[in-house]
Amino acid sequence: MSTLATPGEKAELMETAAVKGRSLWEDARARLMRNKAAVVSIIVLGTLVVLAILGQLGVWVHDYDTIYREEVWVPPTFENWHLFGTDAQGRDMVARTLVGLGVSLMVGIVATIVSLVIGVTWGATAGFIGGRVDQAMMRFVDILYSLPFIFFVIILMVVFGRNIILIFVAIGAVEWLTMARIVRGQTIALKRMEFVEAAEAAGVSQWMIIQRHIIPNVLGPVVVYVTLMIPVVILAESFLSFLGLGVQEPLTSLGRLISAGAQDMEVAPWTLIVPAVTMMVTLFCLNFIGDGLRDAIDPKDR
């Protein structure tokens, strides 16, 4: 990516230097592509995302909320295309798992964006202003850090009903703290870097420094943390769903499917195994990609 050089400067660089330097991002991509676990995870996760989107569109032969009264707890079979069997009410598990996966991924992404916005704004503000404002803002984060937030999310869900938008906001509002810390730390460290000082000395405007030096350099850790946060959010949502506080029937999420499956595991183990394995694979992939990205972007952490 050429965010570090404007077109004019780039042309100049091309003339003076025969060897083109590789940017941070090109380097990172090359390192990521060498990480087998991460590459496999990207492929698997991509497949899962496509399947989940198809599931939401209702492409599968069965709908996720169609009840087949004569086919309760059918084990996985090719008959009637119940590849993963049916649940306690005779609903097709393939369709339900795909819809559940879609909902879980959506919650993961949206809630992460909510927390990204809050966290980056908070952290960047504290880091830039510094001094007492920074102290007060980070002290507030420290205090929130030590609280049992899940209790408040539970109360929130009980009080305001099981609304899917509320789940996004509640989880996002709880998970922004680490993001704020990372962004603040990075901003402060960057402000003191020699290349920022050099840019200041050369008379580059404040806004230009932010755009060309601060943002691209903060982006790395933020991208890594976002990848590692999506699984955390998915877990939080399934935790709520498991307790019966997440999305409402007939809509479903992986947590809700697992919760139902855990109750029927003695008679119909596939209702537990299918969503549980789907969830494990998804979280595995996200964690591997996040770890891979961290190693790729910040190689000294290895």
Binding site: P231, L235, S238, F239, F242, G255, I258, S259, G261, A262, M265, L272, A276, M279, M280, L283, F284, N287, F288
Partner: peptide, 15 residues
């Protein structure tokens, strides 16, 4: 460690 982080307790418990 990756397995431990990726499997939530409410899946691990029933299993």
């Amino acid at each position: 460690a990756m397995v431990g982080i990726s499997i939530p307790p409410f899946v691990m418990g029933p299993i």
